[in-house]
Design a protein around this nucleic acid. Sequence first.
DNA 1: TTGTCTATTGAATCCTGGTCAATAGACGCT
DNA 2: AGCGTCTATTGACCAGGATTCAATAGACAA
Lengths: 218, 218
Amino acid sequence: MDRRVSPRTVTQKARTQRLRTDPGDKPPRARLLVDERRAQLLALGLSLFGARSYDEVSIDELARAAGVSKGLLYHYFPTKRDLYTAALRHAAQQLLEETLPPPDMLPEDRARRGIETYLSFAERHGPAYVALMRGGLGADSEIVNILEETRATIAQRILDALPIGPTPIVRAAVRGWIGFVEATALDWLAHQQVERGRLVTLLTGLLVDVVGRAAITI
Amino acid sequence: MDRRVSPRTVTQKARTQRLRTDPGDKPPRARLLVDERRAQLLALGLSLFGARSYDEVSIDELARAAGVSKGLLYHYFPTKRDLYTAALRHAAQQLLEETLPPPDMLPEDRARRGIETYLSFAERHGPAYVALMRGGLGADSEIVNILEETRATIAQRILDALPIGPTPIVRAAVRGWIGFVEATALDWLAHQQVERGRLVTLLTGLLVDVVGRAAITI
DNA sequence: TTGTCTATTGAATCCTGGTCAATAGACGCT
DNA sequence: AGCGTCTATTGACCAGGATTCAATAGACAA
């Protein structure tokens, strides 16, 4: 990936005609603030990577959809993978922010609120949520880590609220419960066969079951 | 991907020298039966794609590892993705075969046996199992389908054994439980912090909890 | 031995990820 | 207003990996 490109022999004529291919047909360059442009590209990346798999979305397509050149994409993100990673990380951070319950709630209400806001996020950010969930499916360690760190944060919120200390099996059970939540959330997004409130009730009740079961599993 | 290649202008000299670059250094062509060759390529694909991510494994590398030409790979599988897909499908079929409990068992014992054989498969086929679960970066719909069909088959085995009819929420709960199993299986493979029998007991007990909870969730 | 079928090959082609020199937008200063 | 500076933006170019394709050789039957 660190390619040594051969020196370019640029003729005098090519030099003067560079970037001047029929300028009459092109809109003028639109220069944005760095933050604005970066945010635009992240949102677009999430949108496209949420709808199709990573290698189905080419840099060319991303550039066309954003109305910019490929070179600009590389100005902001060193590689296509970096854009993908940044977009997923952005979605993960949003998810964690939006699912953090108020600290003055009772633990039982916090769990329910957390699950409610989780499903709400999944619904409002449909493709971005799917991209995040599927991104973690890859074997690329950096991207798996984004999702695993997100899960670990959520797990820690749960463990912090438990009246018992976290044994390995309780940790594993909480991790499994998060897998349960993700599977039902994706199933729910895809099929919409269960009413949301009912799903929240199921997930909340199951958290208690899971922890209880794990605590007594010898 | 359906590329129209321009007609090749092959000189008379190039035509007679085709496939004749220093034949003294090459082993003779080894022609295999179609089934044998295909099975070889699937096993190799699973091995390599299980160890590294999809786009880290090139067609060149696959060909070299198999001791064949790139052209042969394309003779058997239309694209690199098709080889990948076929390999995953093969792993999924193996998983379903090896986790099917004997039909004359009691339902409770079937569930435990199913879970035991599932974890056993995950352990024995480590990287292949992980590849199946992770499917590749932002897995495309065909690959997601392989995994979803596998899960649906497992879910149907569970639902068939239930004394109650499957309402949408029971279906969702069973789907969630499968998510739970997968999450804990992957966690267990990665960290080995819980003894396997204990995990089996947890998962078996939780299946009862999950179904019971779903049945009463109004 | 000859003919036929097709698995196998390696060179050629193309597309996508990435590079890079030139340019133009934006701003500050005189 | 004009000039200088910085850098976002561009489009042509490049290389490697995915794919194509015409030629060849292995295997079998007559």
